[in-house]
Simulated assay, not measured.
Amino acid sequence: MLINSDQRQPGSGILYVVATPIGNLADISQRALETLASVDWIAAEDTRHTKPLLQHFAIQQTLFSLHEHNEAERSEQLLVKLLAGENGALVSDAGTPLINDPGFVLVKKLRQAGVAVVPIPGPSAVITALSAAGLPTDSFRYMGFLPARSNKRKLELQALLETTATLVFYESPHRVLDTLSDLLEVFGAERELAVARELTKQYEQFVSGSLQEVNEFFQANSGKVRGEFVLMLQGAQLQQEERASSEFDPWINAMLQQNLPVKQISEVISLALSVKKKQVYQRVLELKDAAFE
């Protein structure tokens, strides 16, 4: 089913998906404030969290709860309102809605019904943490919260061993020490890890180093285990480099003998073996230079 946002249901309203601060209220955008003040109602993950935010900015609005336990039923009710021409906003407790928060059921239903859904961008813990972590961000994989039980958690982590993208997880304070121990067991002591907590708040903290170092730091500083955590794990970079030298060379040499351009060789091998083109390109240059020595 093709869904085109240009084909809007006549007379219907708009749902604005509004990002709200993850800690520092000054991070809210002017556009977000204007939107929240102008709509007919706001659907909130927890109205008890949203009321203080609106009161802080002197915004009075009708609130509806929309959480994982009532999302299906509430989505039907909100769809009726939007089809009648009302405008609404969707917010989560903090950050960007739908990113590990409710809203998927509602947004999908509205788009299928031809109701406009407009994002109002703003804070997101994933992006905020990555921007200051010092880990590669050209490719990252957001995994949300890991399973609560250690055996299931380790199984999920083991499936990610060969992932070359930076891995991003959310974790709660009462489980983070166990999760750090499982990361160490599965990925080994040397893989780099960055941990962010209390993002945008007074006691914001970033701790980075090897998995061994970070694990030892938090195990020894249990007083720092407060607030919500973002764990960012380096991808399998070393494994990929070893593979480049051992497996790519026959392909590269064969294509160099055919006098194919370096760029074309890199593109073909990158596509065929699902590796980064930049990495292959560097190896092609090395072998080409060696052939002319």
Rank of each mutant, 00 (worst) to 15 (best):
V207R: 12
V126R: 11
A244D: 04
V117D: 14
V230S: 01
K263E: 04
L146K: 02
H69A: 04
F217W: 03
S210R: 03
A133I: 13
F140T: 03
V91T: 08
V107W: 01
N221C: 10
G88Y: 04
E247I: 10
V214P: 08
A43Q: 01
L285Q: 02
Q30M: 09
A125W: 01
Q202G: 06
R175L: 12
D6M: 12
S5E: 06
G103K: 00
K276D: 09
L167F: 02
N87T: 06
L33R: 01
E286R: 11
Q30H: 07
G13E: 01
V126Q: 11
L183E: 10
T166N: 05
E34C: 13
E247Q: 14
K108D: 12
V126D: 07
A165K: 14
I265Q: 00
L54I: 00
H56K: 13
T164F: 13
Q202C: 04
K154D: 10
R8V: 15
A116L: 07
K152S: 04
A37N: 03
S65W: 09
F292Q: 08
P147R: 00
A84Q: 12
T47Y: 13
I28L: 13
L184M: 13
K81N: 10
D40L: 09
G85K: 10
Y203N: 07
I269P: 00
K154E: 14
H67W: 05
V176K: 08
D138Q: 05
A58V: 14
A116N: 09
A272L: 04
L193E: 08
E204W: 14
L63C: 07
N70Q: 00
R111V: 11
G144I: 03
K278A: 15
P123D: 07
N215M: 10
P119E: 01
T166A: 11
F104S: 08
V126I: 06
V91E: 10
K288T: 08
V186C: 15
W41F: 11
P250I: 09
Q234A: 09
A89T: 00
L130K: 02
L155Y: 14
A148G: 05
P250N: 14
A84D: 07
G122C: 01
L167Y: 01
P10L: 05
R31V: 00
A94W: 09
E198Q: 08
E156N: 15
D182E: 06
N24R: 08
K154C: 02
F169K: 02
N151V: 11
V186Q: 10
L98T: 10
A58Y: 02
A189F: 08
S172V: 02
A272T: 15
S5A: 12
L238C: 04
Q77K: 10
G11P: 01
E68C: 06
S139Y: 14
P10F: 06
V284T: 06
